Simulated assay, not measured.
Amino acid sequence: MQTCVSSFCRVVFASLGVMLGTTGAVWAADLGQAQAPVVEAPFSMPPSWSFHITPYGWLTALNGTETVRGRTVKVHASFVNIVEKSDTLVGLMGNFEARNGRFALYGDLVWSSIGFARNNVRTRAPAPGVTTTVGRALGLDIQMAIAEIGAAYEVARTGSLAFDLLGGARYWYQEADISFEIDRTVGIADLELVGARALARSGAVDWLDPVIGARVRYAVAPGHELFLRGDIGGFGVGSDSSWQAIGGYGFELGTYQGIVFSGVIGYRALSVDYAQGEGRQRYEFDMLQHGPVLGLSARF
């Protein structure tokens, strides 16, 4: 009897062991599934900022008119003409752009000191109320700064072609001196006499133009890009009108310590028509500046 009971107990416990083992495995499997972390697709992070710094030279020619204290001269000078006369042609020129995805901030600065020889300026009729008391123009000197800031947004992209809209402001600062031969000794009290010359000095003149525009960028190949930009401004807020057109080609030269260097060549034209004052206080700058652009860009 005892032997039978012992045999029965062994069968029961063996069965329970099998059941418990199987159930434990199921529980363990269920528990493992419950504790398994849920893996979600990571959020797409916005692209980081990239920065472009481009010192450049603008080989400028000027065509138009300059009026200082009611005396007007017509200007027609090539880059070579200006270099021959100017002691300091270029002080500082540079462009900056910071881009994050579709959005970009940009800035541009031009400072120059330009001189024009006698054969590049011609005396024009003076402003109303100004008596002609000086002879032909002997020269024109202009110190000028142009600073531009703004933002750009990429509104469309098709393959290698991207289209940006731009908006910002362009600040102008000028000081101009025109020198004349003295024809008469009356009516020149507002001018400064230096030897046999009469100088018309403008003093500091500045204004601010709102600017809107667009830019097209085309990736020819990796590291090679064509670009074309145009804008208009002024609208009577600062100048009566202003426009600019820039076309160029950028090409990578190499990478050094994580900085990508590129060459930039192109052509830039900038026109403005600004005037203030009347009579002997008249100042006017109606000028087209244009010429090749050469630069070296660093991206990081």
Rank of each mutant, 00 (worst) to 15 (best):
Y249N: 04
Y256P: 01
A245F: 06
S242A: 15
G254S: 00
I246W: 12
E252F: 02
G247S: 07
G233H: 03
G263T: 12
F261S: 06
A245Q: 00
Y256F: 04
G234M: 11
Q257A: 07
L253S: 06
S271Q: 15
L270W: 15
A269H: 06
G254H: 01
I259Y: 05
D240A: 06
V237N: 03
G266P: 04
L253D: 05
W243Y: 14
G238S: 09
I265Y: 10
F251E: 08
V237E: 05
D240K: 10
L253Q: 06
Q257L: 04
Q276R: 08
V264N: 14
F261I: 07
I265N: 09
A269P: 04
V260N: 05
Y274L: 02
G266D: 00
L270H: 15
D240L: 05
Q244A: 04
V264M: 12
A245E: 01
I265D: 05
A245S: 01
I232K: 09
G266F: 04
R268P: 09
E252Q: 14
A269G: 13
G248T: 11
F235K: 01
T255E: 01
Y274W: 04
Q257N: 05
Y256M: 03
G266S: 04
V272I: 10
S242Y: 10
Y249C: 09
Y249W: 15
F251P: 13
I246E: 15
E252T: 06
G238N: 09
R268Q: 14
V260F: 00
V237H: 03
S241A: 13
I232M: 15
W243L: 07
F261Q: 03
F251S: 15
G254V: 01
I232P: 07
R268A: 10
S271Y: 15
Q244T: 02
I246K: 13
G247Q: 08
G247W: 07
G247R: 04
S262P: 06
I259G: 01
F261E: 08
Q276K: 08
Y267A: 14
G247L: 06
T255I: 02
V264Y: 12
I232T: 14
V272M: 12
G254Y: 00
E252V: 07
A245P: 01
Q257C: 00
Q257S: 02
Y267G: 12
D240P: 02
G263F: 14
D273C: 05
R268C: 09
V272Y: 14
I246V: 14
G266H: 05
G248I: 11
I232G: 15
D273L: 08
I246P: 08
Q257I: 00
G266C: 08
I246M: 12
Y267H: 13
V237F: 05
I232R: 06
G236Y: 02
F235T: 02
G250C: 07
V260P: 00
R268W: 14
G238M: 11
I259K: 07
Y256E: 01
G266E: 07
A269I: 08
